[in-house]
């Protein structure tokens, strides 16, 4: 088995982790990046990224992930596929347990485990996941050719993915609990001008109904009136939950939502442990921030390692 101790371990291979990997590899640090799925993280869930600088026509999430990875590999990124199941931070040397029973250790850890789509938490949702309930428009939109789908949410992701869905579906109904969208203006303008998109305001979904697939939604308006909406599918795009199962949350003083607070240099309360990207306690969760924080975290790590020796 390869070396089990490294100066730096980067946990997670989304935009934050890959950028940290790029910086660490380029700085010739003794590093290891651990990813449990595929490199790219949540950007693999979106079809098009229009707001990452350097790509004047935008770029697909998949391609962006491949490009960042290729860039890091050019500097000999050291990475492995594994699922980290627990982390021990009580000593100066940090320990990580993997799902295959192996354990690894490091002097410095950068947590980049990101986030995952938040479920609605209503009856029918679990049972019908994959049978009409979806959290990934890019993955599943092509199955809804000429059908009617609902999108729940009012943020950037919901509105952008609603527009993507109109390439396949006949009709896309956006259901939002407020009377205005949070999405950025340009996305709103496009959505309002799209004849295939309509809106149901001030409304939440209280139940998803269907036997072999989604048939209809039970809706509740803010004025307490209820109604039903017949749809073939529902895309739940209402924000994210942190991937924090493997983290000692009390030690890291996680916030109420389970995200990890840090200072400006991405240092957590535990010396030698940084957090970067969507797992950080913060307001803006975008690729550009995640990448920026990944870079900052490596610089903080270098400083920590220098002081340690």
């Amino acid at each position: 088995m390869a070396n089990t101790h490294h100066n730096l371990i980067i946990l997670g291979g989304g935009p934050a982790g890959l950028t940290a990997g790029l910086y660490a590899a380029r700085a010739r640090m003794d590093h290891l990046l651990i990813e449990k799925g595929a490199e790219g993280g949540q950007i693999l869930l979106t079809d098009w990224i229009d707001n990452y600088p350097g790509f004047p026509d935008g770029i697909s999430g998949f391609e962006l992930a491949e490009k960042i990875l290729a860039q890091a590999k050019r500097f000999d990124l050291n990475s492995m596929f594994a699922n980290v199941t627990s982390i021990e931070l009580s000593e100066t040397v940090k320990r990580l347990e993997l799902d295959n029973g192996d354990s690894l250790s490091c002097d410095c850890l950068i947590i980049c485990t990101g986030a995952r789509p938040r479920p609605l938490g209503v009856p029918g949702e679990k049972e019908l996941t994959g049978k009409g309930v979806s959290y990934c428009a890019t993955c599943d939109a092509p199955f809804y050719r000429n059908m009617h789908v609902a999108v729940v949410g009012g943020g950037n992701t919901a509105i952008q993915e609603a527009a993507h869905l109109t390439k396949f579906a006949d009709k896309v109904t956006v259901i939002h609990r407020r009377d205005e969208l949070r999405a950025t203006k340009i996305l709103q303008e496009k959505a309002f001008a799209n004849p295939k998109i309509d809106f149901i305001w001030n409304t939440t979904v209280t139940e998803i109904i269907g036997t072999d697939g989604v048939e209809k939604l039970q809706l509740l308006n803010r004025d307490q009136t209820t109604s039903e909406l017949s749809v073939d599918g529902i895309f739940v795009l209402i924000g994210v939950l942190p991937n924090n199962d493997m983290l000692p949350l009390d030690v890291l003083k996680a916030d109420e939502g389970g995200f990890i607070p840090t200072d400006q240099e991405t240092r957590t309360v535990v010396p030698g442990v940084m957090a970067a990207g969507d797992i950080r306690s913060k307001e803006v969760r975008q690729v550009i921030n995640a990448a920026g924080e990944g870079a900052t975290a490596v610089l903080a790590a270098e400083q920590y390692l220098t002081n340690l020796s």
């Binding site: 799925g37 790219g40 992930a65 596929f81």
Partner: peptide, 14 residues
């Protein structure tokens, strides 16, 4: 699976 599906790629190694 399909080539345009990121999560399909994610599950590949497993």
């Amino acid at each position: 699976w399909a080539p345009w599906c990121g999560p399909c790629k994610a599950i590949g190694p497993v």
